[in-house]
Write a protein that binds this DNA or RNA. Structure first.
Length: 273
DNA sequence: CCAATTGTTATTTA
DNA sequence: ATAAATAACAATTG
């Protein structure tokens, strides 16, 4: 499930372990999630280190430990982070467990499209610093979006919104949410959007990121991504998976089809080719 | 057995 | 050569 706001939610699940030492590291060393990572080195260098801080950007998380150790986590399609009690026994899909005195910090991922990265050095690693600047930062301008759409002019707008180099953190449901709010058909070619549509796309990209962070990442306790009832009918999100679902704004039937290889939901009443 | 899944990347096609 | 489309990755669920 993890897109921008869910990633931020999961990052915080390890916050109870901040300032605490890692006594041991438990791994399933053959798991695919370690494909870009030297597992033995990770286990050796992380044991004894203290978790100092964490950050999330796009769909990537970074955990900083004492001694210049940096742990990267990408949740892929099915990854989750959670806290378990000190005595917790890791299960089949718990590929990485940080053992602290009072708890265990667990990374679990059944499908294993996720990814664990590890780096030792003074500053943060390149795979972190090279991430595209956030959609909610000043560098995400209308001009930057317009320029990107021009270069991807022959591609439908839906898959363009999934391109992390310009829309970091956007995933399948956020892309549909943005297009629905901007009233743009997902199959429209990126190169044919009007200046007003480009501006709407820019504005709704920022709004969906902000609202998603407030409503999903802001929740302290239970699991995302169910959005709370108060905003239920103002989000496409809550209707996109129901068969026979209806557009919250027009009441018309929603459509679900493949666009750019991904299931895409839109409201034909608002979003026209 | 078939199809589905909120991600990314390698390979193939145009 | 470049960009776009498609397959592949793996596990589980309906």
């Amino acid at each position: 499930m993890p897109e921008l706001a869910e990633v931020e939610f999961y990052r915080k699940q390890w916050s109870p372990g901040l300032g605490q030492r890692v006594r041991a590291v438990l791994v399933h060393p053959r798991a695919k999630v370690f494909r870009e990572c030297n597992v033995r080195r990770l286990v050796g260098r992380l044991a004894g280190a203290t978790l100092l801080s964490s950050a999330a950007s796009a769909k990537q998380m970074l955990f900083r430990f004492g001694g210049g150790r940096w742990l990267g986590v990408h949740l892929g399609m099915s990854g989750e982070l959670r806290e378990e009690p000190a005595g917790y026994t890791p299960r089949k899909h718990d590929h990485l467990v940080l053992v602290q005195r009072d708890r265990r910090l667990v990374f679990t991922d059944p499908r294993m499209f996720g990814r664990i990265l590890f780096f030792v050095g003074r500053g943060p690693p390149g795979w972190w610093t090279r991430l595209a600047p956030p959609i909610l930062s000043e560098t995400f301008t209308v001009a930057a979006v317009a320029d990107f759409l021009r270069r991807r002019g022959r591609t439908p707008i839906k898959p363009v919104l999934l391109m992390q180099e310009r829309f970091p953190g956007i995933g399948n449901w956020m892309a549909d949410e943005i297009l629905w709010r901007a009233a743009i058909h997902p199959r429209r070619l990126a190169g044919v959007l009007t200046p007003a549509e480009i501006r709407a796309l820019w504005r709704e990209s920022r709004r969906v990121c902000r609202l998603a962070l407030e409503t999903i990442a802001g929740r302290g306790n239970d699991m995302p991504p169910a959005l709370n009832v108060r905003i239920r009918d103002s989000w496409l999100f809550n209707h996109r998976w129901e068969d026979g679902g209806r557009c919250p704004r027009t009441g018309a039937r929603l459509v679900r089809e493949q666009v750019g290889g991904r299931t895409t939901c839109w409201s034909p009443a608002r979003q026209k080719l």
